[in-house]
Design a protein around this nucleic acid. Sequence first.
DNA 1: CAACTGTGAAAAATCGATTTACTCATTTCT
DNA 2: AGAAATGAGTAAATCGATTTTTCACAGTTG
Lengths: 350, 350
Amino acid sequence: MAHRQDQQRRASIHDVARRAGVSAATVSKVMAGVATVKPENAQRVLDAIEQLGYRVDPLASDMRRAKRRIIGAIMPEFESEFFGQMVTQLESLAEQRGYTLVAASSRESEARETEILARMHDWRVAGVVLAPVRNEHGPAAAFMKANGMTGVLIDRVLSDDAFDTVSADSAAASAEVAGQLVGKGHRHILVVGLGEQAATVRARLDGFRTTALRLAPDARIDVVLAESDVEPLRAQLRDYFAKGERPTAVYSLFLKGTLVALSEFRRRGWHCPDDISLVGFDDAEWMQVTWPAIAAVVQPVRQIAGHAMEALFARIEGGEGPPTARLEPCQVLMRESVGSPGNGPHPANQ
Amino acid sequence: MAHRQDQQRRASIHDVARRAGVSAATVSKVMAGVATVKPENAQRVLDAIEQLGYRVDPLASDMRRAKRRIIGAIMPEFESEFFGQMVTQLESLAEQRGYTLVAASSRESEARETEILARMHDWRVAGVVLAPVRNEHGPAAAFMKANGMTGVLIDRVLSDDAFDTVSADSAAASAEVAGQLVGKGHRHILVVGLGEQAATVRARLDGFRTTALRLAPDARIDVVLAESDVEPLRAQLRDYFAKGERPTAVYSLFLKGTLVALSEFRRRGWHCPDDISLVGFDDAEWMQVTWPAIAAVVQPVRQIAGHAMEALFARIEGGEGPPTARLEPCQVLMRESVGSPGNGPHPANQ
DNA sequence: CAACTGTGAAAAATCGATTTACTCATTTCT
DNA sequence: AGAAATGAGTAAATCGATTTTTCACAGTTG
C-alpha cells in the first residue's frame, strides 16, 4: 500500500529515483523491464515505487513518441444498442493493449466528423476507428488520407482504397431475409431505407432484390428511400400507404426505419404478422419481448470490433499491404412479426 | 489552406517561431491573445501558423498544468438510451469549454470502476463525472476522496458529503406514478427493482409506497427485488406469479425490469392493459411504437448532464462550499399500457 | 603494466508547449 | 537630467517521462 501525501502532488519518476538512490533513467529501465539493472538496485526501485504509490503519467510518457497510446473512435451516435455495444467492445480491446480509447459522437454530421478527426489528429492518436455518417468517401476519410493518419473504417462502408474496412455482410443477410420472405409466400414487399448511407443501403437493397427476384420473378419489390432524416421517411411511408399500396411484408434496412414502420402500422391499426409482416435490419433488446416479437438481422458487433482493432493495430505496428475489406456474417432472427400473407384479416383501407 | 509536408512531421511551435522570425514564447503569446506583441509580429506569426497549418498539441500544452483539460466520464454501460444520451451530452458540454471527454464503461462492476478511476487519475484529469454502479458509497467515490480528485456523482446517487450529486427526482416521479395508478383504481400493485442500487431504489420504492398508501390505505404493494442481476429477477418474478399472485399493475423501477416484466407477461399470455397494467422507470424510443405503447418515467438527461457539468466546472475553477445535491424533476408519460383494473379478461391462471 | 572490453548507471537531450526571469529600448515622471 | 515605469521580446526553466550519450570502474588480455 502507498499513502503519505497522496493528496498533494503525485510522485514523479524523479521522486522515485531520489528515494531509491538511483537516476531517473534507471527507474525507467526497471519499469520497462530492461535486464541491465543490478537486481539490488531494481529491488530498491521497486520498493520506492511501492512506498510512493508511483504510477507512470501516460501523458508525459506519450510525449516522446510520435504515435501515442491513444485510439480514437468516432461513431455517428451513442444512443443505439449497436453503437453502444461497439464502443464498449472497442474500449475493452484498446485497453487490453494498453491503449486509451477516446470516443466521440459525430451526431450524424459529416462536418462534425471532420472536426473531431482534426482534434484527434492534434492528439496524435495512434489510430482511429471511424464509423462514418454516410460512407467511406466522405470528407473525414479524405482528411485522414491527406494527413497520413492510421485508421479503419467500419459499419457504413464496403471497401476503400486507402483504409481497411470491416462491416456486416448486409447483402448476404438481406438475401437471406429475401429468401425467407419469398419462401413464406410474400410477393409484394416494401423495402424501407435511408438514401444517405448510399453504398451500404444499396448493398442491402441489391442483395434483397436480386435474391427475391431470382426466387420469384413475379415478385414486386417497392422501395421507399428517405434522403437523410427520419421524419421525411415517416411522411413518405404515410404517402405510400395512403396511395393504397398493400405490400404483405416490409423489410426495413435500418433500426429507425423499423420504428417508423411500426408506428405507421399502429396508426393504421395493422398488426404483425396478421396484417403485414416486418423484418428489420439491426436487432434490439426490446424486440424479443414485445408482442409480436420483431424479426431482425443481428449484426456481429464483437466480430466487427475485434477485426477492426486487429486490422488497426496491424497497421499501427507498421503492417504493409493493400487495404483489406472484411464482411462479417450476420444472423437472421425470424420472429413472430413474420408470417405468411393472407393469414389474417388485411383491412382494405385505413 | 495549409499543406506542404503535412504527411511528415507536424509543425511545432518552434517551426512557427522560426518561420515568423520570432521566439516560441512570442508565438505562445499570440496564440493566447496576449496584448504585448507588436501588431506586425503578431501578423507574421499568424501568417506562419496559417502557412504551416499549425495547431497546438493538447498533450504538450497540458503537460505543465496540474489539472489537464480532460474530463473523465464513467458510466455503468453504454448500451442503453439513457447513458448513450448522457455521454453525448457530457461530450458536447465538455467540448464547449475546450475540454476533451474520455468516457469509459464500468460494465456494471465496482472493481472496474475503481480501476478506471485510477487510470483517469494517472491522466490527471481535471474532473470526473461518475455514474456509480451501485451508489455514492462505493469504493470509487472513496478513491476519489482519498486522492483529492474533483468530481460529480450522478444518476444512482442521492447525496454525498464530499461530492456534488445530480440525479433524477425519482421519488417524486414514483409518487406521481403511484397517484395515477391508485387514481385508476389499482389496489394491488407489484413493484419490481434491483436491490444493488440501494439508495435510489429505496427512494423510488418509498416515494411510490408512501403515496400509494396515503391515497389508498387498503392498497397492497408487493415488492420483488433481485439482488444484482437480471436473470435472478426473471426467476423471482416467475415464482411470484406462479404462487398465484395477481396484481393489477406492475411498476418497474428500472429499464431492464420493464423488459423482464414484459417478457413474463408474454410467457403467460397476458396483455397490457387488459390483463395487467405496466409502468416503467426510464423511457425508450421503442416504447411509443409498440402496441400497446408502454407508460414510462422520462429522466431529464439534458438537465442532469448540464447541471453535473456546471457543478463540476465550478469546482474545477476552485469553487468552495459544501457539496450540493440536486434532484431534477422527471416527466411521467402515461401511455396505453396503463388502464383500469378489471377492464379486460384477467385470466385466473396461467 | 598499458591497452582493451564490458557492465551498469548517471548525465543530458528530447518531446512541445507555457511561464518566469531577464534584457534592452523607450517613455514618463520628478 | 536622472530615475522609474512601460513595452516588446527572448532565453531558459519547467512539466514527467524516454532515450541517447557519456562515464567510471572492473576485469581481461598482450
